[in-house]
Every structure is written in C-alpha cells, then in structure tokens.
Simulated assay, not measured.
Amino acid sequence: MQSAPTTPPTERRDGLLIETDVNLKPYNTFGLPAVARRLVRIREELDVRRVVDHPELGRASKFVLGGGSNLVLTRDVDAVVLKMEIPGLQVEERDDAWIIEAGAGVSWHEAVAFSLDQGVPGLENLALIPGTVGAAPVQNIGAYGIEVKDRLENVDVVDLTTGRRVTLPASVCNFGYRDSVFKQTGFGGLAGKSVITKVRLRCPKPWVPQLGYLDLERKMAETGITAPSARQIFDWVCEIRRAKLPDPARIGNAGSFFKNPVVSAEQCRDIIARDPHIVHYPMPDGSFKLAAGWLIDACGWKGKSVGGAAVYDRQALVLVNRGEARGAEVVTLARAIQESVYGRFGIRLEPEPVVI
C-alpha cells in the first residue's frame, strides 16, 4: 500500500503554489522513490501561463505529471514538475454526437463513469484505465477495440515557451499505436514543448457497441447476453481488468509494460510455424498484432524478479513493485525480458511507460 503524500515546503508566488523537495513516490503508480526539486500544482490553464511568465520557472525545463500511471522513475527530477490537477466535466449534446469536455487533471475512469451516468455511451470499452484525461491523448490509450483517437474531438494545448493556447483537432495529433504528436520529438513533435489542459471527446450517434474482442465475446457467451448495453459492457470491462491486472493501490505497477508488437503477415506465419499457439490478431492493413504477454510468458518470465521488481504472476505483461523496488531494478528486469523475447522470437518489445 502506498503511503499518503506528506506536506512538502510550499511557497505561493505570483499566484502559483510552488512546492520544493517533493517525494514523488505517492505520485507514481509504480510507487518508485524519487524527489522533485520543484513542483507546481496546475489547477487552471492560467497557472501554465504563470509558470511560463515566471522569471525563474519560465526558463527551466518542464516535466508534466498527470496520474503517474505510465512512468518509471529511476532518479530525482531536476526539471520543474507541472502536476496537472485541472478539474471539470460537462456534456454537450449535438444532433450527431455527444461532446464530453474534461479538465486535464480529471481521472480518466471518472470521466468514463461520468459519461455513462449522463446517459452517454461510447467510452465504456476504455473503463478502468488508470491515469488522467490529459494524459490519455498523449499515450493514445486503448483497450478492447477502442483507442482515444477514435473518440477525440480536440484538445486545448498551451505552449510551454510562449504560454499561447491553441485548440488542436484530432486530425493533427498524428496518432499511432500508443503514440501521438505529444510524445514525438523532432520536426512537428510536441514532446516537452506543450501541455494539454482540456480534452473534448466525441461519442457519435447512433451508438454502436464494440464487441469484437475475445474477452467480451466470452462474457456474452457466459451470460447469454448477446446485445449488451453500454453499462453492461462497462461492467464487463471492469471485471476483466480487475481479474487480470493488479490494483496500483495495493501493488505498484504501471499497467501493461510493453506494447503488443505488430509484425508482417510473413513474420507471423514464421512464428506460428514454430509456436502454433501464439496469440495474434489481424490488423486492417494485413499485418498482425502479437500478444506481448504471451511472448513473455512463453519465455518463462511470469513470477520472476530482479530485486524488488517482478513480473506479475497472473499477467506476464505487467511488471510490479513487490514493496521496495527502485526504478533501476524495473529497467533491468524489462531489458532482460526484451533480450529473452528477442532471442526466442526475433521480436523487440517496446516499453509503454516513460522512463525518467
């Protein structure tokens, strides 16, 4: 169980709540130890502009922290940490869709549950994914046949150099599998250059349930419910995720640690010839997505550990903190798994979390 946040030294300057030497262990779901030299709580968009205009903070490098659910901390953080806590949830109904507007600091699962409480279907497949709404487009989170890119209308983004706000439509976010312009560096990339302050999600009318996923098909077969409601799908997804994934409040983790690799049809045939039971899914472009958890399990990693870091004994795709793990141990374990999978299957697994 992670300890409650302690109260660090604080100073209110220029309208900002600035905290120093902040223990980040309670603020990352892996529960890894690290200290932020300076942390600013962002509770409205204006706070970002205040940071940019600040004579000292404005010139410093920035690190945006949401729910800390996609993060592996291996060291203290010298950059100014912007802790995103912007609240707000509301629904606008249009002729062709519902638009859900959420502040970047809202819990993602809270936003999904709120939509259903308001009678708005369309996000139910994305239930119980940890993290904040503001981080969801960055990672292009997805589950059970849906990704955020499928539901995103637009995002409000503030430039960390100029303080200028722009609204970006989904079409310019350059979404990929667990990727977006907000993670990308180089020309056109916004990684480290901007922060999302508000997100608008579009749930189209009429609602069409997304049921083409093995776990959901099993639920339909078990219950005999062939036309589930959005609320029923939400409940099923929560049950499935709770059965497979550990609760970060009880055992530290960052959810699925590796991306499911995508290979060509030829590569997939070669692997199937050697391992006929490999779990694979056809993609629209003719490629195949392989189940990274199956690959890791096939290499015998389930339950293995390095120091305080371990592979979850119920789902090989998840790495966990057994109590006092350090970030370096998580990274060492992850690299050993990558080498093992590459040695057997010739596939390089790519981590999902950001390593600091």
Rank of each mutant, 00 (worst) to 15 (best):
W207Y: 09
A36K: 15
L317N: 09
G134N: 08
P353E: 04
P55K: 00
L295N: 03
R178G: 04
V35G: 09
P121I: 09
T20W: 01
E153Y: 03
A328R: 15
Q338D: 10
G142Y: 12
S171I: 08
D53E: 15
V181L: 07
R348H: 01
D150Q: 00
L24C: 01
R335S: 06
T161D: 14
V155Q: 15
A243I: 12
F234E: 14
E352H: 05
F257M: 08
V311L: 02
E352Q: 11
P33S: 14
R314K: 14
A243E: 15
G68H: 08
V157T: 03
R250F: 07
D117V: 05
G308A: 06
A325S: 11
L123R: 03
Q90W: 13
L57M: 06
E147N: 12
Q232V: 13
T74F: 10
P353C: 09
F30D: 11
E110Y: 05
F30A: 10
S305R: 10
D235T: 15
I225A: 02
G192T: 04
A143E: 15
R12V: 02
S171D: 11
L190N: 09
A60R: 13
D53T: 13
R75T: 13
E11K: 09
I100V: 06
A79D: 15
W98F: 08
S264Y: 09
R94K: 07
V306Y: 00
A36C: 12
L128E: 07
L46W: 04
T226L: 10
K25A: 14
R326D: 14
A243R: 00
W108R: 12
V106S: 09
A136I: 08
P8E: 07
S69V: 06
P276F: 05
R164A: 13
N154I: 00
V262M: 09
R322S: 09
A265G: 01
I18A: 04
G224N: 12
S340D: 07
R75V: 05
S256R: 13
D76V: 13
V52I: 09
T332S: 14
D285V: 12
P26K: 15
P169R: 11
I337M: 08
G68S: 10
V91C: 05
V72G: 08
K289H: 03
A273Q: 05
D47N: 00
L349S: 02
I271N: 04
Q267A: 07
R326N: 02
V133G: 05
L73D: 15
V208S: 08
T6E: 04
R43N: 10
Q315A: 10
V195G: 04
L190Y: 04
D247T: 01
G15M: 14
V172G: 00
D14A: 13
